[in-house]
Write a protein that binds this DNA or RNA. Sequence first.
DNA 1: CTGCATCCGATCGGATACTG
DNA 2: CAGTATCCGATCGGATGCAG
Lengths: 134, 134
Amino acid sequence: MLSEKPLLPSVPFRECPIQVSLGVLGRKWTMLILRDIGFLKVDRFNQIMRATPGLTPRILSLRLSQLEEAGFLRRVETDHSVRWALTDKGEDTLPLLLGFIEFGSKWNADEVFEDKRPRRLSELFPGLPLRKVA
Amino acid sequence: MLSEKPLLPSVPFRECPIQVSLGVLGRKWTMLILRDIGFLKVDRFNQIMRATPGLTPRILSLRLSQLEEAGFLRRVETDHSVRWALTDKGEDTLPLLLGFIEFGSKWNADEVFEDKRPRRLSELFPGLPLRKVA
DNA sequence: CTGCATCCGATCGGATACTG
DNA sequence: CAGTATCCGATCGGATGCAG
């Protein structure tokens, strides 16, 4: 994949896109909250709490506001309850999460799978539409 | 991309692969250090410091040991100097980093590019070999 | 039960100085 | 050049309380 020389973009970066992406996204629990909402379809406060062992209400509340503020989530108030929905920007983080699923399924198979055998995304999600990335 | 129902893998996860991937990887500065070594080809302690404004020697030292311990990096001692190299596992994080580059180039274009115009990976790195993922 | 707020100890990260 | 040591503030996590 790599040569000896720096990989330079055709248009220079004013700021590193990796660094600017890692605002809220880089904080603890954030990715897992996006996983809950985006993949597990768990979109209410205490459901997210139950889906994410170790997460406390204080941190969840904090991250939800930060994610809303940064435009990843939308707070949806329906009759007597609150739901959290992904915005378009939030949905665009799901490929990043799939990247981590792929990585973990390959390099941490012993913890991820009962039989400890590494697996690829195509095996885990046979029907998933594939997109070209890198 | 999404339905209303949870996205379930063909083989159940014993632990969430996203969560297990986010050990050292999820800590502050880790991704940028991997960027320095993997993309910028900056592989020495003080070079990494200079390439990463805000990073302090204490944290860099800490992250390098953690990354080495977790199998992402190899410490290479050559004549009178130390270099840090990616292992195979470390190289496999580069697609994740490209994901963040793609994300930031789309959603934070105002900070990333002088002309504030969002760009795709294929425009930024025309020659980059593309692989199907998700 | 849901969606927080408050307090408080533990851990993490930043600043600075210093060494082989 | 390649890190350590020390100190301190910021953030995190755990327990508890509380209103709707």
